[in-house]
């Protein structure tokens, strides 16, 4: 007799508004921690979500704004069955994540740049990615399947 695992997966929606300062990363960590108590997923998946959110946020904080003003960055997470949708909005410089080139991770060490890795990580750990520019805002909508895949994703390029 196999063990029947009862999955509790409710519809979940959370949103936070952050400022364009790295200290607000703590708020992301708090939301991911809250998510862990709400949806049924592995610690590993939570680390991947943590990474996706940190890289998106850090990227817009580092590169999104040319002025020195405070800006809002809105992030919402919604989970319906096994699909987690991440939506981020900011009023920074236009940045189309879907058009961002992958870094050359196989070149010689001396030529190896240190940029572009964060977005590369995001793309590796998500299953669908859409970008819109509306009313001077960047809107990124990502989807991630939270169910454990039978095989490890083989995309190390």
């Amino acid at each position: 007799m196999g063990v029947i695992r009862v999955k509790v997966m409710r519809k979940v929606k959370m949103s936070i508004t952050l400022k364009n300062r790295l200290a607000d990363l703590d708020k992301i960590k708090a939301v991911v921690s809250k998510l862990s108590g709400t949806i049924d997923c592995t610690r590993r998946k939570l680390k991947e979500i943590d990474l996706i959110l940190e890289e998106l946020f850090a990227n817009v904080v580092h590169h999104g704004f040319k002025d020195n003003r405070e800006h809002d960055i809105d992030i919402s997470l919604s989970c319906d069955d096994d699909i987690l949708e991440i939506r981020m909005e900011d009023d920074g410089e236009p940045f189309d994540i879907t058009a961002s080139p992958a870094p050359d991770t196989r070149c010689a060490l001396d030529k190896r740049g240190i940029g572009g890795l964060g977005i590369h990580f995001v793309k590796h750990f998500i299953d669908d990615c859409k970008y819109y520019r509306e009313k001077n805002k960047n809107i990124i909508v990502l989807k991630k399947n939270m169910a454990e895949k039978p095989h490890k994703k083989n995309d190390s390029k």
């Binding site: 990474l51 870094p103 991770t105 196989r106 060490l109 190896r112 890795l117 590369h120 990580f121 590796h124 995309d155 190390s156």
Partner: peptide, 10 residues
């Protein structure tokens, strides 16, 4: 994460 970054080669 190291593998995706290609650091395993360096």
């Amino acid at each position: 994460v190291f593998d995706i970054a290609g650091l395993d080669g360096y």
